[in-house]
Design a protein around this nucleic acid. Sequence first.
RNA 1: GCGCCCGUAGCUCAGUCCGGAUAGAGCAACGGCCUUCUAAGCCGUGGGUCGCAGGUUCAAGUCCUGCCGGGCGCGCCA
Length: 593
Amino acid sequence: MKSAIHDLLRAAVATLAVDGQFDSSTLPAPQLDRTRDVMHGDFATNIALLLAKQFGMKPRDLAQQLVSALPASPLLARVEIAGPGFINFFLTEAAYHAEIPRILQAGHNFGRSQHGAGQRVQVEFVSANPTGPLHVGHGRGAAYGAVVADLLAAIGFDVHREYYVNDAGRQMDILGTSVWLRYLELCGENLRFPSNGYKGDYVWDIAATLHREHGDAYRVDAVELFANLPVDAATVDEPPRENGDKEAHIDGLIAAAKRLLGDNRYRYVFELGLNVILDDIRADLAAFGVEYQEWFSERSLTESGAVNRAIARLRSGGHLYEQDGALWFRSTAFGDEKDRVVVRDNGQMTYFASDIAYHMDKLERGFDRVIDIWGADHHGYIPRVKAALTALGDDVNRLDVLLVQFAILYRSGEKAQMSTRSGEFVTLRQLRNEVGCDAARFFYVMRRCEQHLDFDLDLAKSQSADNPVYYVQYAHARVSSVLRQAVEKGLALEPSAGVTNLELLTAEHELALLRTLTRYPELVETAALRAEPHQLTQYLRELANDFHTYYNAQQFLVADVALRDARLKLILATRQVLRNGLNLLGVSAPESM
RNA sequence: GCGCCCGUAGCUCAGUCCGGAUAGAGCAACGGCCUUCUAAGCCGUGGGUCGCAGGUUCAAGUCCUGCCGGGCGCGCCA
């Protein structure tokens, strides 16, 4: 609908440009906006104000000429010039009525478009280390990423959803070692669990599996294991101690574990921990309605030689240097605040080295656009990744990093704190079980991603008007209920009947609802392009409000057959749009509540 | 100290990209609406120096500069 009016406007501007000897390509493209106030019509443009200077005319005079140059259209009831020179477009009721069969015919495709056709986009999100269950912070990234991906797919992009699995590195060694130590305790060994180890119950569970299936096959003498290790720091329950170093202690434990178990047995414990947790994350996300095309292994980057290749490319470009026994990337040459180590003095690759290789690999896979969705605490990491891509000679503009701020849970006004390491956290699974997937998905994307999210558990659970997700779902259920009763009373409409009777929809509430319905395709497109799912939640609340208002003002199942038919078509179209929008959010559209 | 994000009604937030018309919504408060399709709903009323100060502009919540407040980050951790 908007594009039709936009075409008329562009034609008028082009006509005037020719008359006035202007090259239309040098003029700003006319913007057409939805009006805020119905007094200003349906659409408005400020193009006369913007072009007045170039055309050497007063804005209102230019506006008048533009209006005269507008091609005739059955969509336009009238066009007015207002204020300093705005041009306001008032659409005919028929223009709105014609949208109803369009919505009904398009069905679940209404709002979808081919805007991004032919372009491949990768969206990488969540990518939490598989060292424990996902917590509520990951949940926001999951919901946000999934909806952004679905929005982009809705406007025609070929979307590749990916989870980067950190299945290598020190944190995973700490997890494997934590599992093994718990196992030793189950074997009856007496030991002091390291302050830096993973203390969650899930570690005990994995250790119990190992013990149940393999008995004492992985047991060693704890006294021998802990001999000659650097002193650990104090845990939170212990009095402070001097000279403790939790990092050196855990690294010593990892090295001892590898030595005492040998490669094969160490590997087995490590893999057991990784696989159990990764399976849990997969199941958790699947239950949350989040699906991926690919789970990309960090380890595979080393095995495929991608990391070495990335380093070689940086080296041949002269971007690497050695200092203090380590290999550094001169990222300051590309705007980073300091240079970064890619190979440590002990020969180990840093996480950053893998990440360079990963992003190099992403671009090599030919995506037109690569979107990373990270927690806001990683924002300092953006300059170095972009620096690396620039140094590699890749087009850094293909990468967008979107930062998602923290989600803070509130229960009866109190914050719920979370930390994976201490084992005291609220998991995504707990949240899903408590408030349900629908409320969780909706609440997570209700705010702009740059905004801290106050997640009110009590509100998310409440079945009342306060709860926006129920409010929208209730509108859908209400339409369904009316349609059910129409069938029961033998009043079912014939959806294929086309535009017949729609001219009877002239009440203010009906036209307001229609106006909102026709905004949907525009809304989906901007929400997708700007990666702003909250626009969709906002819109659905407005649409639900328009419907509830209409519902309270008019009876649908009236005796007048023609009027009833028209109203049923309108609410059927409303249900379709509610359903399409909820579907994009990953929220169910219940037939009854 | 440096960098990123945020600051709009009592509360939670839209609106800022790309400057436009009297700054919007929900909650909370107050007052109405169920013999009629689900009251999980609707309608109405009150409530704002858009953090502060300058600047640009015909026009600034929106753009620029400087402050102030809050969050996060500044490892040869991931």
